[in-house]
Amino acid sequence: MTVTDIRIPDEIKPVDGRFGSGPSKVRPEGVEALSAVSRTFMGTSHRQKTVKNQVARMRRGLAEFFSLPDGYEVILSNGGTSAFWDTAAFGLVRDRAQFAEFGEFGAKFVKAVVDAPFLSSPTVHQAPGGQAAFLTAEAGVDVYASVHNETSTGVAVPVRRVAGADEGALLLTDATSGGGSLDVDLRETDVYYLAPQKALGSDGGIWLALMSPAALDRAFSIKSSGRYIPQFLDLVTAIEQSRLEQTYNTPALATVFLAAEQLDWMNAQGGLSWAVKRSAESAAAIYGWADRSSFATPFVTDPALRSAAVATIDFEGVDAAAIAATLRANDIVDTEPYRKLGRNQLRIALYPTVDPADVAALTTCIDYVVERLA
């Protein structure tokens, strides 16, 4: 039987078949709310209250959701996480950085710092895919950087400050895909940056950062030192504009609105604790199924490192690409693995937008497909 011949019965399919790790599932209710304001919000000036009020709503939602500590601020700007890595290289690393790199996304921040001619060579602690690397105290390091959830591999580590670090050293945490699905105490980090198109169930185009007073001070200190910083990557500009409920350039208006809608929804459900519990239920469904399966196993072998934001599942004796293609032909989409990892696996988003019941239904569909492919 070929991929296109297999029709999954409607009664066992997920209610919503979107499992992408980013862009992620956008709740229909959010799209409906955006449609309702399409003539008064979309296509209007981002310098006016119509848009600035939505930026403010999003910032307030993030502050409430993450229980923002005193003195921390919600900062945003255009360009996504890729732009933030360069922004941090210019505006937060004074001279030396140390990285914990254990996947493709952590490696991209490393490259941004390595390529910066005005910074010293960083220290990089590396681990192969499916494992984790950790930071260690090192004299002279002024920025430590790690990943809360490695989107490419499905490895998650706790957010903790580096014991014994030099006084004034900052910790930067990449929460691109972990923020909103994994528990965090923001007092344990100085910058917790995330993307709206993951757990926030929005679209892409901006970066969001929850910054401590020390991180805010560092940005202004570096700017005043005379370092050349491109305007688009100027963190001080992003801070000042965020305080005005706007961005330097026109932001993606739909992204701002959808993120604000999602945050209102999650806060109404119970905030971060609710979201963490919901993602954990989805994780239990997918990993429990894989542990019981004769042909599927969790790629991350250490249960303590298995992410509740993104699950990666290896397959043996069956072509995962054929499974993904069959699922896609049946309107169950974006289960393909991270392309550069090059493994025979599926990658499943477990964000709060995804119903745990749909994850359980997905496992039933995979079993159905595998039986017929065999």
Rank of each mutant, 00 (worst) to 15 (best):
D5A: 13
I6W: 04
I6V: 11
E11I: 01
I12R: 01
R18C: 03
G20C: 09
G20S: 15
S21W: 00
E29A: 11
A36R: 13
T40L: 14
T44Q: 05
Q48W: 04
Q54M: 13
A56P: 04
M58R: 05
R59K: 10
L62D: 03
F65C: 04
S67C: 12
L68M: 13
L68P: 10
D70G: 09
V74W: 06
S77D: 14
S77Q: 14
N78F: 01
G80T: 03
T81R: 11
S82E: 14
F84N: 12
D86P: 02
A89I: 08
L92D: 00
V93K: 11
R94H: 13
R94I: 00
Q98T: 07
F99N: 07
E101A: 15
F102H: 10
G106E: 11
K108Q: 15
F109H: 06
F109Q: 05
D115P: 06
S120R: 08
V124R: 14
V124N: 12
H125M: 08
G130H: 04
Q131G: 03
A133W: 06
F134I: 03
E138Q: 06
V143G: 11
T151A: 15
V155W: 00
A156P: 00
P158N: 12
R161W: 02
R161M: 04
R161P: 02
A163K: 10
L171C: 02
L172Q: 08
L172A: 03
T176V: 14
T176G: 14
T176N: 03
G179H: 06
V184W: 07
V184A: 07
R187P: 07
R187S: 13
R187K: 14
V191Q: 07
V191E: 09
A195P: 04
A199K: 06
L200Q: 04
G201A: 14
I206H: 11
L208K: 05
L210H: 14
M211C: 15
P213R: 00
A214D: 14
F220N: 14
S221V: 10
G226N: 13
Q231S: 15
Q231F: 12
L233G: 01
A238Q: 11
E240H: 06
E240A: 05
Q241D: 07
Q241Y: 07
S242T: 11
Q246T: 12
T247V: 10
N249C: 14
T250P: 06
P251F: 02
L253C: 09
A254Y: 01
T255E: 13
V256G: 05
F257N: 00
A259H: 03
L263A: 06
W265S: 10
Q269M: 04
G270I: 02
R278A: 08
A280C: 05
S282D: 01
A283L: 12
G288S: 05
W289E: 04
W289P: 08
S293V: 04
S294D: 15
T297H: 07
T297L: 05
T297P: 00
P298L: 08
F299L: 13
V300S: 09
P303F: 11
P303T: 08
P303D: 07
L305R: 12
S307H: 08
S307M: 03
V310H: 10
T312I: 09
D314W: 02
D314K: 06
E316Q: 12
A320F: 01
Y338D: 13
L341Y: 12
G342R: 12
N344F: 09
L346T: 02
R347Y: 05
A349Q: 11
L350R: 02
T353L: 15
A357Y: 07
A360S: 14
L362N: 06
D367L: 03
Y368G: 02
A374Q: 09
